[in-house]
Write a protein that binds this DNA or RNA. Structure first.
Length: 920
RNA sequence: GCGGGCGUGGCGUAAUUGGUAGCCGCACCAGACUUAGGAUCUGGCGGAGCGAUCUGUGGGGGUUCGAAUCCCUUCGCCCGCACCA
């Protein structure tokens, strides 16, 4: 019988399930290896061929490491809270838990068919209370913590309270919101409300008025990374800026560590760089400008304190709190109008009209701290409320934006660098010599930089400061399908639930929409009150909450005493290999690092980074097919003729298209509206257009792995996805080469069988040539897996099987180790062959064979001999010879004499085992 | 604008990390066995040339005995960030 993959694969999948072949327990006798995939959001569309790419790679790695003697933790679960299920619920009234459950079942079925070696006993689902209990628990830890800059780590809030009681807050070096100083006596005299208000300014999870990205269509706030170009990432709805009371996480406290520790992990440079940009560290100075005729001061942050003498105006963000106070009566109208304009300009407009210069003069003046000159104070929305202090000292000579603003509003542009031409643009370089700059004159910009900070600090005008672009993470979402935030309110003061009161279950509601007065959906649960009395927080946590720590829960998914036991945490430590998409670079991958560091600070974890090694698998794109409908008709014109008509391109289901030819009867049946469609053909065929796009249901270009498995089998799908190219590379899905992989698997099967397809393996001793093929393959496969080059190892196997086929080698001594090596890639067929070879136990219980140098050593090597770097001929020379002997042999050849033409060579380069190069 | 990555046959890719460019597969061509082939096997396959040979890794320049690989420059593509003071 030829290999029957359908039967064999189903049978082994059942065997693995029944025998719990991949269940993992702590085993201190073995080294651990934690191989993790980014868990999927179980969408209604099911898996497409792009999803398993990373899973296949991690599965191969896991199987390989197991055979190498490692205790491998390779789990899978679902990121099952999320927007699509909720929106489906809004439309249909179906509870999100129900749809989620169905989708998970479908995902599981599809995953199982690919033959993954996941330990399903450790499965997690973020939407289950046994899981989100611990997400809530971590939130409570954040709520009860503050960041001690002196110690460089998070600490329990009780430590802070006892300092307040004894010393007030002057000695505390914390990452907190701006706050006045108070003494111990003052603290002790404050009432509960005031104390809680102050503590909130220190907590790592805090409630504050924030400028947020508000998406009216979704009825919720969004984090910066959930907004793309002024539109929501999910759904693509417009987003506006709005001030709201929101739960936030003080991730900014970790900015420096998140930045520095990037140097300790082996992650793709692109991800590290994206995180560095996102954190956006910049060094400079904070300084204050006094307002003329007032006690008020405007604080600014600048990276160019060296240009202080070039300041000719200040600009405040329109939202800046001092704008209203300092605006003069004459300018009031203009300022109010501008603020109204800026407020109603959508984020989208503001971003796309960067070049448009707008602003207004407040009428107020500030004093230059060094020259005491009057400096006009303007407002303009090129200054962002959320960055720095929301105010800038404008140096038009040194900053292009300030220059543009000054030019537009006719403000002076005082020169501060010698010979700099600032008539057409600002000069932002620091290399010139400073002029008109008081004590800085004569220095270069670089020197002036340091000198200016020294002087600013000396005069008490401000201080050197490091600023980060990173903002605190807004943690509340006005949605139903998420983790309830475990907080209740007493006299408007938020209090967290105690650990014993968790989980705080998600309540049932009648509808999944916001209430009529704009409250989040949870407000619909009228009876849902803490102790039947106090209102709970009605926002839920964002999508990234559950995914920020799931790698830890896999270590103790059944544990109900803690998120994972100390023993498990100490054994499994961190993820050794993490595979997932690059789109999470500044979202999930930053938050998971943040939470890991936080839990490390509190002593719950032995590590402060979640994953040592990260690989971003490339996206598999779809190839969309198009038909061209002549506008206003139901007539479709073939791709080559479409330019003769006014047409609209319509996506057509790729399953109706083969070699770009449309299956016309199928197309007519596809949708009722096309049943009487007409076609204008070329060469009797309808040719579709095609384009590479992201694989998505709406583009009708989704290819499901199930189809491939049905036609070629799971082993073939696994190997083909690996064969397609480097794991990190994005590529469009096509099945052009799949027959090559399919042939390989058939050839493999035939090695163990005779012409009549009867199992036929000989016990003869292998020849040197056969041993060489085997050991070469083992070595190469091992090297390839260790450097995550899965595509080249598939080629290695193809070569191996071709060579063994040529030698008609069916010897057990060769095939048995080869089967083991291959089992990481093609687990089903190798299990079957292993059984046929007479083994009782699953091939997963074996050991990866060790390659031996002795079978690989050559006694001679065919040297490429180059003349002036160009290879001219080849010469077989024993490898044992010395450089001199090799040189002599080469020189004595007839060919060499021809090239030398009687002369002596200028130079001879001999690299033993590599090449001989003669320069004449 | 800033940052990251990439550019090799008709196509997907490989190259021991500076040492024979094009492994492996697809497609294609020729042949064998066949009633037949969308089966199997054999051979060929970067370009030019009957040939020895020449030429060739987006273009130009450099370092080197030797460059797809390192450096400079230029063109093109993909991704991320973007009024961050």
């Amino acid at each position: 019988m030829e290999y029957n993959f359908r039967e064999v694969e189903a049978q082994w999948q059942k065997y693995w399930r029944n025998h719990q072949s991949y269940k993992t327990e702590i085993d201190s006798n073995k080294p651990k290896c934690y191989v993790l995939d980014m868990f999927p959001y179980p969408s209604g569309a099911g898996l497409h061929v792009g999803h398993p790419l990373g899973y296949i790679a991690s599965d191969i790695y896991s199987r390989y490491k197991r055979l190498k003697g490692f205790n491998v933790l390779h789990p899978m679960g679902y990121d099952s809270f999320g927007l699509p299920a909720e929106q489906y619920a809004i439309q249909t009234g179906q509870h999100p838990a129900v749809t989620t459950e169905q989708n998970i079942a479908r995902y599981r079925e599809q995953l199982d068919k690919i033959g993954f070696s996941f330990d399903w006993s450790r499965e997690v689902r973020t939407s289950e209370s046994s899981y989100y209990k611990w997400t809530q628990w971590i939130f409570i830890q954040l709520f009860h913590s503050w960041y001690d800059n002196a110690a460089g780590k998070a600490k329990n809030i009780s430590a802070l309270i006892s300092v307040f009681e004894k010393e007030g807050n002057a000695t505390v070096k914390a990452v907190n919101d701006h706050l006045d100083f108070f003494t111990a006596d003052e603290w002790n005299a404050y009432d509960e409300e005031k104390q809680q208000y102050i503590l909130l300014k220190y907590r790592l999870a805090y409630l504050a008025d924030m400028w947020v990205n508000w998406c009216p269509a979704l009825g919720t706030v969004l984090a910066n990374e959930e907004v793309k170009d002024g539109f929501s990432e999910r759904g693509g709805y417009p987003v506006e800026r709005k001030q709201m009371k929101q739960w936030c996480l003080r991730i900014t406290a970790y900015a420096e560590r998140l930045l520095n520790d990037l140097n300790t992990i082996d992650w793709p440079e692109s991800v590290k760089e994206a995180q560095r940009n996102w954190i956006g560290k910049s060094e400079g100075a904070y300084m204050e400008f006094e307002i003329l005729n007032s006690k008020l001061k405007i604080g600014v942050f600048t990276t160019r304190p060296d240009t202080i003498f070039g300041v000719s105006f200040l600009t405040l963000a329109p939202e800046h709190e001092l704008v209203d106070v300092i605006t003069t009566a004459e300018q009031r109208k203009a300022v109010d109008e501008y603020i109204y304009y800026a407020k109603n300009r959508s984020e989208r407009e503001r971003m796309s009209e960067v070049k448009k210069i707008t602003g207004a003069f407040t009428g107020a003046y500030a004093l230059h701290p060094f020259t005491n000159e009057k400096i006009p104070v303007w407002i303009g929305d090129y200054v962002l409320a959320g960055y720095g202090t929301g105010a800038v000292m404008a140096v038009p000579a040194g900053d292009q934006r300030d220059w543009d603003f000054a030019k537009h509003f006719n403000i002076a542009i005082p020169p501060i660098v010698k010979d700099a031409d600032i008539s057409l643009a600002a000069d932002a370089t620091k290399d010139g010599i400073m002029i008109n700059s008081g004590f800085l004159s004569g220095m270069t910009g670089h020197e002036a930089m340091k000198a200016a900070i020294v002087e600013i600090e000396k005069r008490g005008l401000g201080k050197g400061k490091i600023n980060y672009r990173l903002r605190d993470a807004i943690f509340g979402r006005q949605r139903y399908w998420g983790e309830p935030i475990p907080v209740y309110y007493k006299n408007d003061i938020p209090y967290s639930l105690s650990e014993e009161e968790l989980p705080l279950m998600l309540p049932e509601v009648d509808k999944y929409l916001p209430t009529e007065d704009g409250e989040p959906p949870l407000a619909r649960a009228k009876e849902w009150k803490y102790k039947g009395e106090f209102a709970y927080e009605h926002s839920t946590m964002p999508g990234w909450a559950g995914s920020s720590w799931y790698f830890l829960r896999y270590m103790g998914s059944q544990n109900d005493k803690s998120f994972a036991s100390k023993e498990a945490l100490n054994y499994w430590q961190d993820v050794d290999l993490y595979i997932g998409g690059a789109e999470h670079a500044t979202g999930h991958l930053l938050y998971v690092r943040f939470w890991t560091k936080f839990l490390f600070d509190l002593g719950y974890l032995p590590v402060s980074e979640p994953a040592k090694k990260l690989i971003n698998q490339g996206m598999i794109q779809g190839i969309s097919s198009f038909v061209y409908r002549i506008n206003g008709t139901n007539q479709f014109v073939s791709s080559g003729l479409k330019d003769q008509y006014e047409t609209t391109a319509l996506h057509v289901d790729v399953s109706l298209v083969k070699n770009n030819q449309l299956n016309i009867p199928g197309f007519k049946q596809w949708r009722a509206e096309y049943s009487d469609a007409d076609f204008i053909l070329e060469n009797q065929l309808y040719i579709c257009g095609s384009e590479v796009e992201k694989m998505s249901k709406s583009k009708w270009n989704v290819v499901s792995p199930d189809e491939i498995i049905q036609d070629y089998g799971a082993d073939c799908l696994r190997m083909y996805e690996m064969f397609l190219g480097p794991l990190e590379q994005s590529k469009p899905w096509n099945t052009n080469g799949i027959s090559g992989v399919s042939n390989f698997l058939r050839k493999l099967w035939r090695l163990y069988h005779n012409k009549a397809f009867q199992f036929d393996v000989s016990d003869e001793a292998p020849t040197a040539a056969e041993l060489k093929i085997l050991h070469k393959t083992i070595k190469k496969a091992e090297e390839d897996i260790e450097r995550f080059s899965f595509n080249t190892s598939v080629s290695t196997f193809m070569i191996c099987v071709n060579e063994l086929t040529d030698l008609k080698c069916n010897k057990r001594a060769i095939l048995e180790p080869l089967t083991i090596v291959l089992s990481a890639y093609a687990p089903h067929v190798t299990e079957e062959l292993w059984k046929l070879l007479g083994h009782e136990q699953s091939i997963t219980k074996t050991v990866f064979p060790q390659w031996k140098e002795e079978f690989l050593v050559e006694d001679s090597y065919e040297y490429p001999v180059s003349v002036n770097g160009k290879t001219r001929f080849k010469l077989n020379i024993p490898l044992s010879l010395s450089k001199e002997e090799i040189e002599k042999q080469v020189m004595d050849t007839e060919e060499m004499k021809k090239y030398l033409n009687g002369d002596q060579p200028k130079k001879v380069i001999v690299v033993p085992g590599r090449i001989v190069n003669i320069v004449v």
